[in-house]
Design a protein around this nucleic acid. Structure first.
Lengths: 195, 195
DNA sequence: ATATTATGTGAATATATATTCACAACGGTA
DNA sequence: TACCGTTGTGAATATATATTCACATAATAT
């Protein structure tokens, strides 16, 4: 087999893991399955990671860094608050559609109950996310784009809840149409509620 | 050890399982842990259930029957739609507070991905639940208690999403206050949004 | 009282999974 | 070219878990 640097192999392993969560769930994340999915033998996994916990940390880092920063970037942009909200919402929906493993991993029992340190850092990131969205909503209220008497934080939680619950219903197979269509329906109703 | 009928033992085992999910998650549901929690030896579990799948089915039945029928009962009552909605919301929140194992089990990967038959029946129950709440919301719109232009189904999904996301944040330890207080904040904002 | 059936248990058994180890093969370097 | 560190692997090893089995004991019927 071709030899590659450990940096490359780590990325490959993390990506294989993320794909595996998406297709078969966190429960399928055995070293054996990860190795097969990444196209190498089990022992080689340990050449690049100290063990399963190391892979979990690396995946959490990847998701946290490359994914959850996106909302902050959008929020910092120059569009109107309402446009920002919509962009955040649909960019996260399409992310979930492309990588169902992301919400599954973040909200998995294995992470939340089995890796308290990861859970804590993810909880903090989600807290920041809520604050970011709250800020955009507050700005929308200030600028008169949104209703005056709504609560930014609780409304932000509703928005996140919609995304999370949609991902969950997708896993359940309880989605009548595809996730993007469902998201559009949810959004147009949300828009009526907040404006 | 005292001998009891298999009917009693089954209930004890199911309750022990539900409690265990609440305290330690679905991932802790080993036969060994269930047996210890129910105060009997492992082999005795098999005297009353065919295996782990049997316990899972029984727990899903218990949750489905004794719990998720509650919303329908409230909806069928004689109060105003808005009062019904509020009662449904807070009765489910307090259920989740008392039995954190319920949402954890229903939305667990082990059930959703590992037991497709259970997942299907639970998806159907949740679908009914959404329809029930949608109906109440539609009635509220008709009677002028709620805003005229909101969509019943999508608004019902928001309500469920709030409950589910609150349960999830509780598991994450990301709840600043207790779950009932958090729920009250969410509800008063929701009330502003829909009326 | 005795026989029969239902219930309870410790000790196997089988399997899955994480992890380690001894060795092989490749790539750069002196 | 010969050497050495990095990467790759099949075969152990250890542990956890689900399940079965032979046997014990309580409840119940005859």
């Amino acid at each position: 087999m071709e030899k590659k640097s450990t940096r490359i192999r780590k990325e490959e392993i993390v990506q294989a893991t993320l794909g595996l969560v998406g297709s078969r769930g966190v429960r399928a994340l055995t070293i054996s399955a990860i190795a097969e999915s990444a196209g190498m033998c089990e022992a080689n996994i340990y050449r690049h990671f100290s063990g399963k916990d190391g892979i979990f940390s690396a995946l959490a880092d990847f998701i946290g860094t490359s994914v959850m920063g996106k909302a902050a970037a959008i929020a910092a942009g120059s569009r109107s608050p309402l446009e920002k909200l919509e962009t955040i919402f649909f960019s996260h929906i399409s992310l979930v559609a492309d990588y169902p493993g992301i919400p599954r991993f973040i909200f998995s029992e294995d992470v939340l109950l089995g890796h308290p340190d990861l859970a804590k850092s993810l909880a903090m990131r989600i807290g920041n996310y809520v604050e970011t969205v709250s800020g955009v909503i507050a700005a929308g209220i200030d600028e008169g784009e949104l209703r005056q008497n709504i609560s930014p934080r609780e409304t932000a939680l509703i928005m996140l809840g919609m995304i999370q619950f949609t991902a969950l219903r997708q896993t359940m197979g309880g989605l009548s149409c595809d996730i993007e269509t469902e998201a559009r329906k949810l959004w147009s109703n949300f828009l009526i509620l907040i404006s």
